[in-house]
Design a protein around this nucleic acid. Structure first.
Length: 428
DNA sequence: TTTCCACAGGAATAAAGGGCGA
DNA sequence: TCGCCCTTTATTCCTGTGGAAA
């Protein structure tokens, strides 16, 4: 008998259409965002009269529809414009994969040169650039050369533009090209940001030009999420596959966090998969329960932490191990000084020279940004005030993730687990 | 009120690694 | 192969701040 012989796995019990729950699924109409779409359309419509567009800045937490709205409206705008003999090229990148202006610019150039890119009518017969090695000035010149070969109107979408942080060189070059008329085409920049303070951190030279018009996407209310999930569930599942309260629970959990539709749908999908697998195994269950949702939430959270920890650099893992040890002893929140002392011991145990206080401190801050640690004095953070850190994820989850290290460098975490157990019992 | 100390964090700089072009 | 230019990671130096002690 083969491993993949049919044991009932191929029978569908709950899910009839998985694709509507996938992140890349695009609904025919963006749900529960009528007002925002209406505003967005108003901002884009002048193009159809042949007028220049203002630069637009979209704000809102992740999963509230900023990118989907952009990807829904802009191709439609381009097609409508073309019917009126107005040429439009669309170019989109996600700045988070690049991190710096330099790399984002190279990514923009490579997108523009990529023949498969679905949004643009540009078809430049030029080789793609490597990620490094060119003088910055040359990179910006190549970008403008490419854009000068595009349509009369170019709309540049910079998704997650806030991840560029304080490195605003790309934004400066783009806004400068507008004010100095370095481009023959009319350029409209659409910046999409998850960070509401991003605008404030921009230098004045960029801010005034770039943030001409702003559009805010508020977090979804719980009722909105219930409507969205209900519609998806109707398409995705067989009738009667969700017990009452399941949709509401998914919506409540997502709304409690950041009001993200993406998060709510991911939760429902995972819960459905758990129920489907259980149905195959037991052959007598055919609905998603609230327990499936709670299990799904734990699995998703665990996976996020595990992936995050796996991607940490060596010294960052040692810093985390130091905090984890202190947590297992019940000594967190701990001050930077105490964590640093413990970290030095850990690094030496692994035969590495410890970093300086400043370097280790930087790793602590980074892990706070990643949601692995939490600075409990964050509100009063600043010079002269000691920071205190604790784990921002369950201790057991962190120990599990450290134990799963691919290189096997960090092992023998049983002592840590025993200490953690003792602390838990003491707490009880 | 002043002084001193511990601390966080900014800025400048160095080292190592990688790609490109001559 | 070498020099140039970039990135990332880390160090060193320094300054501003909060809080305790004098």
């Amino acid at each position: 008998m083969g491993y993949f012989d049919d044991d009932g796995f191929l029978d569908e019990h709950i899910i009839k259409n998985r694709s509507v729950l996938k992140p890349e699924y695009k609904p025919e109409k963006l749900e529960e965002r009528d007002e925002e779409l209406e505003e967005y359309v108003k901002l884009l419509r002048p193009l159809l009269k042949g007028w220049d567009l203002d630069n637009i800045f979209l704000y809102g937490h992740s999963g509230v529809g900023k990118t989907v709205a952009t990807r829904t409206l802009l191709p439609d705008l381009r097609d409508t414009a073309e019917e009126q003999d107005i040429n439009v090229d669309l170019l989109e990148i996600n700045c988070s994969s690049a991190n710096t202006s330099y790399q984002s610019t190279i990514e923009l150039i490579n997108e523009a040169r990529s023949p498969e890119y679905p949004l643009t009518t540009l078809n430049l017969d030029k080789p793609e650039l490597s990620k490094t090695g060119y003088p910055a000035e040359q990179v910006y010149e190549e970008l403008f050369d490419d854009l000068n070969e595009a349509a009369d109107n170019i709309i540049l979408i910079l998704d997650e533009v806030n991840t560029l942080g304080s490195d605003s060189e790309l934004l400066y070059q783009l806004t400068r090209s507008q004010t100095m008329h370095k481009l023959e085409a009319e350029l409209c920049i659409i910046g999409i940001s998850n960070d509401f303070n991003f605008r404030d951190d921009l230098p004045a030279r960029v801010k005034d030009t770039l943030c001409e018009t702003e559009l805010h996407f508020p977090a979804y209310e719980q009722n909105d999420l219930v409507s969205i999930l209900s519609r998806r569930a109707e398409q995705a599942f067989y009738d009667g596959s969700t017990e009452s309260g399941v949709i509401e629970l998914c919506a409540a959990l997502a709304s409690r966090d950041r009001g993200s539709a993406r998060q709510a749908i991911r939760l429902l999908r995972k819960a459905a998969e758990l129920a489907e697998n259980q149905a195959v195994e037991t052959d007598n269950l055919d609905s998603i329960t609230e327990q499936h949702v709670r299990d799904a939430e734990e699995i998703i959270e665990r996976k996020l932490v595990t992936t995050g920890i796996r991607n940490l650099t060596t010294h960052r893992k040692y810093v985390l191990l130091a905090v984890t040890n202190l947590a297992a002893q019940g000594n967190t929140p701990a001050q930077t000084r105490d964590i640093y002392e413990y970290y030095q011991t850990v690094a030496r145990e692994f035969g590495r020279d410890p970093l300086t206080r400043r370097g280790a401190h930087e790793h602590l801050l980074e892990m706070c940004d990643n949601g692995i640690l939490k600075n409990v004095n964050r509100d009063q953070r600043g010079r002269g005030r000691p920071n205190k850190y604790k784990l921002d994820t369950p201790l057991e989850t962190v120990i599990d993730a450290l134990e799963q290290e691919e290189d096997g460098e960090i092992d023998n975490l049983d002592d840590l687990r025993n200490q953690a157990d003792r602390q838990t019992r003491l707490g009880e």
